[in-house]
Design a protein around this nucleic acid. Sequence first.
DNA 1: TTTTCTATTGGGGGATTCCCGTATTTTGGC
DNA 2: GCCAAAATACGGGAATCCCCCAATAGAAAA
Lengths: 233, 233
Amino acid sequence: MEIVDLSTLPDSEVRYTEFLRQICEKHDMDHAAYAGMNPAAGTVAGFVTYDDAWNEHYQKQGLIMIDPTIHMARRSIAPVDWSRLERSPDFQRVFRDAHDFGLPSQGVTIPIRGPYGDIGLLSATRNCSKEEWRKLYTNFIGDLQAMAVHIHDNVVSSDQLTGALYHPTLSSREAEILQWVAAGKSQQDIGDILSISHRTVEVHLRSSREKLSALTTPQAVGRAIAIGLITPG
Amino acid sequence: MEIVDLSTLPDSEVRYTEFLRQICEKHDMDHAAYAGMNPAAGTVAGFVTYDDAWNEHYQKQGLIMIDPTIHMARRSIAPVDWSRLERSPDFQRVFRDAHDFGLPSQGVTIPIRGPYGDIGLLSATRNCSKEEWRKLYTNFIGDLQAMAVHIHDNVVSSDQLTGALYHPTLSSREAEILQWVAAGKSQQDIGDILSISHRTVEVHLRSSREKLSALTTPQAVGRAIAIGLITPG
DNA sequence: TTTTCTATTGGGGGATTCCCGTATTTTGGC
DNA sequence: GCCAAAATACGGGAATCCCCCAATAGAAAA
């Protein structure tokens, strides 16, 4: 097994779809798709090997809003075998359409999460009998898992690195205090913890809000978590 | 390859360490360890195949606080090969001790994140040459990835406190209001927007906090964003 | 060196949030 | 249908937060 190092390839859009195509080849898949969501930047990146016709239909019909593979995978740790969703009405809605475009309704979606709330979904489909699918599943799932990590890691780090320049930086004290706030501590608590006045805590909090262009502390905490300056407590 | 279904085995503590032992056997590893952290519940679950002597030393010396493999993996998407940390002073501190207990300083830690801020770390160590390690790496990393997902998924869903937190659903009104809070609106603002009393807004906010097991609104917003119930505003 | 800027620390007082109640409507289980 | 639980809605008063003010130490710029 060989993992192509994505970071050595030239252009992003092309190299990601090419990477997906390689995954298909290696495991005899019909199609592969990746969707990466970065709540910090509010961006969604998608790369697919599907035909343009299906992509357009998918977009136009707003199928992403009801696609159960996405909803399920967003809330799951483990890979989601689409067969588990077969009885969902939304599934039938989406895959009846998919079938018209010649796409198989057999596949798996692997969720990958980064430390900053970012989520990547790698899906792969293959048209074969259920027995065959089941038999192959345990063989390729580990590799797909590694592929999903690889592509997601590359997408977000290239995205966040560029985005990092536009994001504010908190002083260590500010980040420290905001982290305690995110952990549910009151200003008085934090003052006691850090052995400073709760007034001082508030000033740091205020400058944190200003740096994050937040109107309120909850908004500041939300942004700081989304950006990755602090972690949810 | 065969994945032993953890949920079918009897007792938790035993079955997890047994699972780790099987991982070791399959991939010729010396030791394996899993640590699962649930920041929301504040719980940490750990299972290891190390000797008790090392465990005790590790605990007693508070090595978990400085262990760079943990710190690094907590912030990473991809597996962390320990060789990347060799020059860290903390690494040398921890693994000088480890060496005294006969543990190899070659290993990898795989981070797995769930949708609710929970993190699982699966580590595996093996005493061999660097060349051999490198050569084997691409072979077992995919499988280890799948194993990490499997064990973390099981631990998290069997943890009762987590289980409760794991499916927090906000009512539409609660999510709507929390979303406005994350957008920096005050309770009065939100009341005006939704044409209800700001008192009512506060009640929904309170039940949101309770459902998210949050002590404060900022903490609730942070968690809701981390979970994906709302988006940063 | 002097100036300027930022990080840090602190107080008073008004605004906001939060905890304590209550009540009506909707939902879900038996 | 009935009852329990949750969702929705509102208010008083205490606790907390947030905006105004000022001050010092240290770093960077002049």
